[in-house]
């Protein structure tokens, strides 16, 4: 038996919007730790890892570790029917081939339930070690979205270079080239407007912009995004979900031939 009650239901709505374009169907793993997911896009170039810790739910009951396979497009369709202020409860009985989403309005005057068919999904989990990255950049998530969007109109790939002077985003295409440099700036009024660059080693990696653009669908979840990079490793793009968890995206780099 699984029963998860999330008072801030809008978080779940935003999470689905953040992952459904990258991954069409996925297994959600439920355990005493939390509600999580790891899934790759169909080309195995990008991966999304979601964690919603059990402490973040008002009520969290998960009798045994289970994996429930859901079509994310369909799940997003159902969650779109929840109001932004609604409380969302996810329920699944043992052995059932359906999951129920219950939406309660804050004043309890409207209660809806949507039952969705589960799917059998073959999925493989990748073992991603916890590593110290050579460089990490914290920046406003809106700024990162803007950069990815702007550069996409010029080229298909972006080279992200971190040096002690800042982080440079470079692209080129048929019409020309573009460079955007962001410098460390922590002397701002609001911490969410700060750009913070930690660098142990300079790093320069190239990535497909269409994936980074897809990751920015998570922007409504967090004011800050963290980019972590090491030479010859996938980049990690992390959006924290309050103190409840995170959505992390991993993207394999382009490699010179």
């Amino acid at each position: 038996m699984l029963e998860l009650r999330l008072v801030q239901g809008s978080l779940l709505k935003k999470v689905l919007e953040a992952i459904k374009d990258l991954v069409n169907e996925a297994n959600f793993d439920c355990s005493s730790t939390g509600f999580s997911l790891q899934a790759m896009d169909s080309s195995h170039v990008a991966l999304v890892a979601l964690m919603l810790r059990s402490e973040g739910f008002e009520h969290y009951r998960c009798d045994r570790t289970i994996s429930i396979g859901m079509n994310l497009t369909n799940m997003a369709k159902m969650l779109k029917c929840a109001g932004n202020d609604d409380i969302i409860t996810i329920k699944a009985d043992d052995g059932s081939d359906t999951v129920t989403f219950m939406f309660e309005s804050p004043s309890q005057d409207k209660i809806s339930d949507f039952e969705m068919k589960l799917m059998e999904i073959d999925s493989e989990h990748l073992g991603i070690p916890d590593t110290e990255y050579q460089s990490s950049i914290k920046m406003p998530s809106q700024e990162f979205l803007r950069i990815c969007k702007d550069l996409s109109s010029i080229g298909d790939t972006v080279m992200i270079s971190v040096t002690k002077d800042g982080v440079k985003f470079t692209t080129s295409g048929d019409i020309g080239t573009a460079n955007i440099v962001c410098r460390q700036n922590t002397s701002v009024d609001e911490p969410e407007n700060a750009t913070e660059i930690k660098m142990q080693e300079p790093v320069s990696l190239t990535f497909a912009l269409r994936y980074l653009n897809s990751f920015t669908k998570a922007t409504p979840l967090a004011n800050i995004v963290t980019l972590s990079m090491s030479a010859d490793l996938p980049i990690v793009v992390e959006y924290k979900i309050g103190d409840m968890g995170y959505v992390r995206y991993y993207l394999a780099p382009k490699i010179e031939e």
Binding site: V45, H125, L126, I128, L233, Y250, A252, K254, I255, E256
Partner: peptide
């Protein structure tokens, strides 16, 4: 010219 790598060349499956 640059080639797109895949995640399986960096991480093993569990």
């Amino acid at each position: 010219y640059s080639n797109q790598s895949t995640l399986s060349s960096f991480y093993g499956t569990l």
